[in-house]
Simulated assay, not measured.
Amino acid sequence: MSRGDEVIGFDSLNDYYDVSLKQARLARLLDQRGYTHVQADLSDRAAVENVFATHRPQRVVHLAAQAGVRYAAQNPHVYVSSNVTGTLHILEGCRHHGVEHLVFASTSSVYGANRAMPFNEHQGTEHPLTLYAATKKANEMMAHSYAHLYGFPCTGLRFFTVYGPWGRPDMALFLFTKSILAGEPIKVFNHGHHRRSFTYVDDIVEGVVRALDCPPGKDAAWDGMNPDPATSGVAPYRIFNIGNEQPVELLRYIEVLEECLGRKAKMEMLPLQAGDVPDTEADVSSLVDAVGYRPQVSVEQGVSNFVAWYRDYYRV
């Protein structure tokens, strides 16, 4: 909006986590010029069709999903409804209303059982370890088929462990901060030894907007015999990683949080959870080549920013 774009926001404001946090986020946008909000569910086909028909968006950024790796074990059907059916409705809207570029969120979780580090988009992703990852892999394949059949450019962005102000309360940084301030123990899985490409939210936003401004064309280097998973010779389609290239061990992440809070954590050491991968590490060279941007905010700065926001928002 700050650069003059008009934005149609679409969100169900469901109760997967604290609705008041979602409403507080939204309140920052509602009075701004150029913003229109629609409260509806992506799995509601008529509601999605109505938004496309009414507003005729030029470009679409599809970030909505049922997130969380472990919640899928409790409620698998909502993942298919939100992530698969919801994405189908977005693709149909783009198809029928001349959208010039669709950018959609995928996840580093699609790398699944792959252990070749760093993860890059040219590796196979055929072995997801969770239903969440499987639905996001399905989104990538659905988008490719629509890009091929109907010719509108699609860009998928694989996010790596996003954190920062206004984030999800079910994420580790939120849970750790709340527990440490309350003097309660935190659960540290894999004894804190797994590593993640923790990626600050501002880095994600910058990558999303830059990708939105660079729709893909067809990749000429296609022989049909050994296709590249990240590109396509038959469709205007591209996959990029967005993640910090400097993975951080969980114990270091906790140490930084302790420094920012001025308190030590009481840690309950536990084994790796089912479905979790030991490490993630992002190779973002393709993103750099395509849009000239590399995520760069350190965990020291990012966690500090989060703690400042958390203390202000929760008055603690």
Score class of each variant (00 low, 15 high):
residue 2 S to P: 09
residue 3 R to M: 15
residue 10 F to R: 13
residue 12 S to F: 01
residue 13 L to C: 07
residue 15 D to G: 09
residue 15 D to S: 13
residue 17 Y to G: 05
residue 18 D to H: 08
residue 19 V to W: 01
residue 20 S to D: 13
residue 22 K to V: 09
residue 23 Q to T: 05
residue 25 R to T: 09
residue 27 A to Q: 13
residue 28 R to A: 10
residue 30 L to I: 11
residue 31 D to W: 00
residue 32 Q to N: 10
residue 37 H to E: 14
residue 38 V to D: 04
residue 44 D to A: 09
residue 44 D to W: 04
residue 51 V to I: 14
residue 51 V to H: 08
residue 52 F to A: 11
residue 54 T to L: 14
residue 59 R to E: 15
residue 62 H to C: 11
residue 63 L to Y: 06
residue 70 R to T: 11
residue 72 A to H: 05
residue 74 Q to K: 15
residue 74 Q to D: 14
residue 74 Q to H: 13
residue 74 Q to A: 12
residue 75 N to P: 03
residue 75 N to C: 15
residue 76 P to A: 12
residue 80 V to A: 11
residue 91 L to S: 07
residue 92 E to Y: 05
residue 93 G to P: 07
residue 94 C to Y: 05
residue 95 R to D: 02
residue 97 H to L: 04
residue 97 H to I: 07
residue 99 V to F: 12
residue 99 V to L: 11
residue 101 H to V: 07
residue 103 V to H: 02
residue 106 S to I: 13
residue 107 T to F: 05
residue 111 Y to C: 10
residue 117 M to N: 06
residue 118 P to Q: 10
residue 121 E to S: 05
residue 127 H to V: 01
residue 130 T to L: 03
residue 133 A to C: 06
residue 134 A to D: 11
residue 135 T to W: 05
residue 135 T to Y: 07
residue 137 K to F: 04
residue 138 A to I: 05
residue 138 A to S: 15
residue 139 N to H: 08
residue 144 H to T: 08
residue 145 S to H: 06
residue 145 S to Y: 08
residue 147 A to L: 01
residue 149 L to W: 06
residue 151 G to K: 04
residue 153 P to H: 00
residue 153 P to N: 05
residue 153 P to A: 06
residue 157 L to H: 09
residue 159 F to H: 00
residue 161 T to S: 12
residue 162 V to N: 05
residue 167 G to P: 10
residue 168 R to T: 00
residue 171 M to N: 11
residue 172 A to Y: 11
residue 172 A to K: 02
residue 175 L to K: 13
residue 176 F to G: 01
residue 177 T to K: 01
residue 180 I to A: 08
residue 184 E to P: 04
residue 186 I to K: 02
residue 187 K to V: 10
residue 187 K to P: 00
residue 190 N to F: 10
residue 190 N to Y: 12
residue 192 G to C: 07
residue 193 H to N: 06
residue 193 H to L: 10
residue 195 R to F: 14
residue 196 R to T: 01
residue 206 E to G: 03
residue 207 G to S: 12
residue 209 V to I: 08
residue 212 L to D: 02
residue 214 C to V: 12
residue 219 D to H: 09
residue 220 A to S: 10
residue 222 W to F: 14
residue 223 D to I: 04
residue 229 P to Y: 02
residue 229 P to E: 05
residue 230 A to H: 07
residue 237 Y to I: 08
residue 243 G to S: 06
residue 243 G to Y: 00
residue 243 G to R: 03
residue 255 E to C: 02
residue 259 E to K: 13
residue 263 R to I: 07
residue 265 A to K: 00
residue 272 L to R: 13
residue 274 A to N: 04
residue 279 D to P: 05
residue 281 E to W: 14
residue 289 D to W: 00
residue 293 Y to F: 15
residue 294 R to V: 06
residue 297 V to T: 11
residue 297 V to D: 01
residue 299 V to H: 02
residue 300 E to W: 03
residue 306 F to A: 12
residue 308 A to C: 02
residue 313 Y to H: 09
